[in-house]
Write a protein that binds this DNA or RNA. Structure first.
Lengths: 233, 233
DNA sequence: CCAAAAGTGTTGTTGATACACCCATGT
DNA sequence: ACATGGGTGTATCAACAACACTTTTGG
């Protein structure tokens, strides 16, 4: 009835893969990096970043490795979504995939430096094409999860550069949650949380009043959570 | 890089299992049903309800089947937690497990009628023994998940009998969330949501004023969610 | 001077919190 | 009569939404 029962010795799967929804935020829109498949029955179609889970590694490690191989980035913020196990998700074979989503700062990611071999492209969240396998389902699930998590913990900052303005932050939340926010009320709320560190710096090269720059301080957040702090948006 | 690449043909796993945290609510305490293992290296130790994922079934189907085999219950409320993939979670072999948690009404479950072959026992949530493999980790994770989900959607009702009193419901939330609630404020809040259907029935055989019985109406909830309703506790 | 975004202030409403209190019922 | 939980009412305070207003800067 559990792993010690050797009733079914033959594995019920041909393998386990990892698939990552790779989120980035560009100006005012949330985007996902997709790669084009060059071979096999799915030639020409777009899909999520993925690879095989190896014998010796955990899924988290596998995801970091695969993303490093594909994009060159290390220590990316990522969270597991869940296992996708529909027996018909891949034709002919039984492949279970473990879905992830990752949040990256677009400034850290240089599309030319990486993915030389494969065609890669950013897609706006509401302009996603038909993807291979069940990748559309994984992507839809990741969006729900992101919208949930972003209200409960300050993970959205991973999508922004280190220094950002309050309005940038607000636009990020507007885009992710699909709502409109009031500038004044948003400022009050977010500053009241005392999660942000105000910098002695302002925007440059903007054709309007330069906004103050802030940075998210993980240490402050840590201290606040220890005191029983709740991030609610 | 994805499932179509046949670079790694040999499966990186010896098999995939399902493990379920089986929650029940008894009077004033949240409990979990554990089973004792009769064979193998884990003989005598307690663990979660589990079994192997079969070739033709999804993880959700597998979980339902396994729970049916073990407890006799059908159509149980369940949610996938995530995949647990630490390569050292099981000695000697590579077994990935997909964790689930399930909420059942204790009145529906008769411990004698089922699990004849295996030793099974309810454990209070803060009296959990050392479990096999990484089952303690799975259980801890499920508690976090349950606490989160119970605030966002009316899933807690699955732990109660069909007809219940407001105080019972309040005790359920107090126990799950580990907080104390104000009777008066709780009543107002929950009744204000209009999720509950007041019945023309009262408690019986209680040595104090009999409380009104309510029932959770899934249809009402459905209509409310369609209008953009938010269940927040 | 104007456009555009930064940033401040005000006001009404809602909802949470903390209590105090009365009601019904079995022993 | 009293213990036990059921159930109601109210005053206070904090959070939020809506919106009007002023400030800074480049062109």
């Amino acid at each position: 009835m559990t792993e010690t029962t050797t009733q079914h010795n033959k594995p019920a799967v041909d393998g386990i893969t990892i698939d990552c929804v790779f989120f980035g935020f560009n100006k005012e829109s949330l985007e996902v990096l997709l790669v084009q498949h060059a071979q096999g029955e799915s030639k020409g179609k777009w899909g999520l970043l993925g690879g095989w889970l190896q014998l010796h590694e955990s899924a988290d490690d596998a995801a970091q490795r695969i993303l490093q191989e594909l994009t060159g980035l290390e220590d990316i913020y990522l969270e597991q979504l869940k296992a996708f196990t529909n027996p018909k998700r891949v034709l002919e074979r039984r492949v279970v995939t473990i879905g992830y989503y990752t949040l990256v700062n677009r400034e850290d990611y240089n599309i030319k430096a990486s993915l030389k071999v494969i065609e890669a492209k950013w897609y706006k969240i509401n302009e996603i094409p038909d993807l291979i396998f069940d990748h559309n389902e994984i992507l839809d699930f990741s969006l729900l999860q992101l919208r949930n998590r972003v209200r409960q913990a300050p993970i959205g900052f991973n999508l922004l550069p280190e220094k950002f303005t309050l309005l940038q932050l607000m636009h990020l939340y507007e885009e992710i949650l699909g709502i409109e926010l009031d500038k004044s009320n948003f400022r009050r709320k977010v500053l009241h949380m005392k999660l942000l560190q105000a910098l002695d710096e302002k925007q440059k090269d903007v054709s309007h009043r330069a906004a103050k720059l802030y940075k998210f301080d993980a240490d402050i957040y840590k201290k606040l959570t220890e005191k029983g702090f709740n991030f609610e948006f």
